[in-house]
């Protein structure tokens, strides 16, 4: 793991990965959108509105996936003082917040025709809203200190505290009797969703993941370059 703590090595590696992940994102999202918007059947009850699922569900998965990744990075940053782990959490936060926001908005748009309401205060929706606030709180905390290092360390502790919310989101539909339907893909006894719908869903999920990898790598590279410029300016000023 400490092999990749070297920024120069990381820059080389990420430059090698970037074109592939960017290409995969474009291909997967085009294929996924074609499958989900044109080639998959409408639901027998929900009709065409079921297509919101192909954005909503992957975004919801990603919001949790990104948070768990950030929390793991935060733990690595606190335990091993891994410099890139801190930066990863910082770079991933806006992307994760974006996915959570998309999940909430599409869920609301889906809820309006299906449940007859834009928003209900059930356990799943509330816990995802808390996740969104955690992302926002993390970003505000990281930027609140004059010393960026201190901000990222405080943010790491907050990420680890917020991890209690993740199992609550995952199991909220099982623990409470909610309007939100229980999980139908990742469950004991295999998915209960038909293959014609599962395929575009998974393609979209992979597309979102490669998009996340691409954006985070770009943001990490930019952050490292920015650090470098800052250091160069400082040494120049000190003459």
């Amino acid at each position: 793991m400490h092999r990749f703590a070297n920024p120069a090595r990381f820059q080389r590696l990420s430059s090698a990965i970037l074109p592939w992940s960017a290409g995969a994102t474009v291909v997967l999202l085009i294929v996924g959108l074609y499958f989900s918007l044109f080639s998959s059947p409408p639901d027998y009850q929900q009709g065409e509105t079921v297509r919101i699922m192909y954005i909503h569900v992957p975004a919801a998965w990603m919001s949790l996936f990104v948070y768990v990744n950030m929390a793991i990075a935060a733990a690595c940053g606190l335990v091993w003082k891994h410099p890139l782990a801190d930066l990863f959490a910082k770079a991933a936060a806006p992307v994760g917040a974006g996915f959570t926001f998309i999940c909430l908005v599409t869920g609301s748009l889906w809820g309006a025709p299906m449940w007859g309401t834009w928003w209900v205060w059930d356990a799943r929706l509330t816990s995802v809203l808390i996740l969104f606030f955690l992302y926002l709180g993390y970003m505000a905390l990281v930027n609140a200190f004059d010393d960026p290092q201190r901000g990222m360390r405080a943010g790491n502790v907050l990420l680890l505290v917020g991890i209690v919310n993740v199992p609550i989101i995952k199991f909220s539909v099982d623990w409470w009797n909610t309007l939100h339907q229980p999980s139908s893909v990742i469950r004991m006894g295999g998915p209960t969703i038909d293959g014609t719908m599962l395929t575009p869903l998974l393609v979209m999920a992979f597309g979102f993941t490669t998009y996340f990898i691409t954006v985070v790598l770009l943001r990490l590279k930019a952050e490292i370059v920015q650090r470098k410029i800052q250091t160069m300016r400082l040494t120049e000023a000190q003459g």
Binding site: I130, L136, A140, L141, A144, D146, R150, L158
Partner: peptide, 26 residues
């Protein structure tokens, strides 16, 4: 107490504290 410890020395610590802590109070 977690929030108070996290925001120690932050700019606008009080506002930040409520932003961090209120979601966890829900």
């Amino acid at each position: 107490s977690i929030g108070a410890a996290l925001t120690l020395g932050a700019r606008r610590g009080g506002v930040l504290l409520s932003l961090l802590i209120l979601p966890l109070y829900i």
